[in-house]
């Protein structure tokens, strides 16, 4: 028997999907188009997708060719890349180490440690805002890159993802290596990690996306305009702190620059994003 959906129903479904897809995508097109408009043109016809006349003023300021240092977007971009890269490299390594130990190594306190990881994962991020400020202040590292990076280099969700992955691969290859006399670390580094490539890619992407998009942590541990990332810089720009007024093309262009790196990653590694959403990369 056939369970085919009738043709007219499919048409209705397509219609609905296309309607929703427009709702989800159109704002991004408006954003792109508006960043190429002049300030008055932006609000004159906010729906038009073809800038007429084309105005590159916002982009000249974004690339630092005009407008001076009040809105140093190139510097913020560098900060974003620097912080997100360092956090990602360290986090992937340290999360894998811990995840491997929790999955494979027998030692006292392991069960307790895993329970702690689960507990930490359920701490709402917003409850850490003030605590993070207090400790960073106490350690005398307020307003430094150290304060931005160090608290983010381990995350419980990443440890959890890696542990789950190691649980799912067979142990026999490692045991062979261990019998051949390789140390625990050597086995981990040259036998296990190469097998863990899919999980490592997922974790790399989630870590980069997470630290690139990070807002509250950087907000409470830094102050200096020069320490801002694209996200915190954009937030100060948008909330009128830098007396940017209603310069929509500039703000939307800056928002676009903030979106592009993650968007590129998303389109290349979409599969990893979606599996991440189902494994531990819940945005929040």
């Amino acid at each position: 028997m056939t369970l085919r959906t009738p043709q007219w129903k499919l048409l209705v479904l397509y219609g609905l999907l296309i309607l929703f897809a427009i709702g989800f995508i159109y704002p991004f097109f408006i954003q792109i188009a508006t960043s190429f408009k002049s300030n008055p043109a932006a609000t004159e016809d906010p729906l038009s997708l073809i800038p007429n006349p084309l105005d590159l003023d916002a982009w000249r300021r974004i690339f630092g060719l005009e407008g001076g240092s009040a809105v140093p977007i190139p510097l913020w971009t560098l900060n974003s890349f620097f912080v997100a890269s360092v956090v990602t490299v360290l986090r992937v390594f340290l999360d894998s180490l811990a995840g491997y130990a929790l999955s494979r190594l027998k030692f006292r306190g392991r069960g307790f440690m895993f329970a702690t990881v689960l507990a930490v994962m359920s701490v709402p991020g917003v409850a850490l805002l003030l605590p993070r400020f207090l400790i960073v202040n106490y350690l005398g590292i307020y307003d430094t890159y150290t304060a931005m990076i160090l608290p983010l280099i381990v995350d419980a969700a990443g440890v959890f993802i890696m542990k789950q992955f190691f649980d799912s691969i067979p142990i026999s290859i490692e045991e062979a290596a261990r019998i051949d006399g390789a140390s625990v670390f050597r086995t981990f580094w040259s036998v296990v990690l190469p097998m863990a490539k899919p999980a490592l890619i997922t974790l790399t992407i989630l870590s980069f996306q997470g630290s690139w998009n990070e807002f509250t942590h950087f907000l409470v541990v830094t102050q200096d305009v020069e320490k801002r990332t694209l996200v915190t810089g954009l937030a100060s720009l948008a909330s009128g702190e830098l007396s940017a007024g209603t310069q929509y093309p500039l703000k939307l262009g800056a928002a676009l620059i903030t979106t592009i790196p993650v968007a590129i990653l998303f389109f290349i590694f979409q599969r990893h994003f979606t599996s991440g959403a189902n494994e531990g990369g819940v945005k929040g």
């Binding site: 996200v231 993650v262 959403a277």
Partner: peptide
């Protein structure tokens, strides 16, 4: 295609998206 279209907003920065919405819902916005 549809899955991608619906999921894409979820991976972008909450701040960047908010800026877009500030423009969309401005008095003379979209």
């Amino acid at each position: 295609f549809f899955r991608t279209a619906f999921y894409f907003p979820s991976v972008t920065s909450s701040i960047a998206i908010s800026v877009v919405f500030i423009f969309l819902f401005a008095n003379s916005g979209a």
